[in-house]
Computed example of a mutant assay.
Amino acid sequence: MTWFAGATRRAVVVAAAASAILLSGCALPSPQPTNTATPRPAPSPTPTATDPLAGLSVEQRVGQLFMVGTAATVAEAETVAAVRDRHVGNVFLAGRSSAGTVATAAVTAQLTALVSTESTAGLPLLVATDQEGGQVQVLRGPGFSDMPSALQQGSLDATALVGDAKAWAAELSSAGVNMNLAPVVDLIPSPAAAASNPPIGAFDREFGFDPATIVAHSKAFRDGMSAGGVHSVIKHFPGLGAVTGNTDTTAGVTDTTTNTQSDSVGIYRSEIASGATSIMVSSAVYALIDPTAPAMFSPVVVNGLLREQLGFTGVVMTDDVSGAAAVAAWSPADRAVLSILAGCDIVLVSRTPAVAAEMVDAVVARARTDPAFAELVDAAARRVIALKSGR
Results as ranks from 00 to 15, higher is better:
335 R>N: 02
340 I>P: 04
118 E>G: 08
200 I>Y: 00
276 A>I: 00
183 P>Q: 07
72 A>I: 06
210 D>Q: 13
38 T>E: 02
43 P>R: 11
112 T>I: 03
188 I>Q: 08
226 S>A: 14
163 G>T: 15
277 T>W: 10
309 Q>R: 15
193 A>P: 08
171 E>W: 02
349 V>R: 09
351 R>T: 09
386 A>P: 13
282 S>D: 05
330 W>P: 00
343 G>M: 04
185 V>R: 04
102 V>N: 13
46 T>S: 13
257 T>A: 07
87 H>L: 10
28 L>P: 09
107 V>D: 07
307 R>F: 08
47 P>L: 04
167 A>G: 15
58 V>F: 03
303 N>H: 14
186 D>C: 03
291 P>T: 01
372 A>F: 06
168 W>Y: 14
131 Q>G: 08
249 T>C: 10
16 A>Q: 02
20 A>G: 14
371 P>L: 11
17 A>Q: 12
229 G>I: 12
258 T>W: 00
183 P>C: 05
378 D>Y: 15
388 K>A: 10
27 A>D: 11
40 R>N: 14
168 W>K: 04
198 P>F: 09
299 P>N: 11
156 L>Q: 13
195 A>Q: 08
346 I>T: 09
79 T>N: 01
168 W>E: 12
139 L>A: 05
39 P>Y: 04
372 A>H: 07
273 A>P: 03
195 A>P: 04
213 T>C: 07
334 D>S: 09
229 G>L: 04
126 L>Q: 06
245 G>Y: 01
227 A>M: 10
230 V>Q: 06
267 I>Q: 01
34 T>G: 12
218 S>W: 14
30 S>L: 09
58 V>P: 13
152 Q>I: 08
120 T>N: 04
37 A>M: 11
124 P>T: 11
29 P>K: 06
21 I>K: 13
152 Q>C: 07
83 V>T: 04
380 A>P: 14
339 S>P: 09
301 V>H: 00
39 P>D: 08
168 W>L: 05
286 Y>T: 08
337 V>W: 00
176 G>P: 07
147 M>H: 12
342 A>R: 03
108 T>M: 10
133 G>F: 13
372 A>W: 04
327 V>G: 01
178 N>C: 11
238 P>R: 00
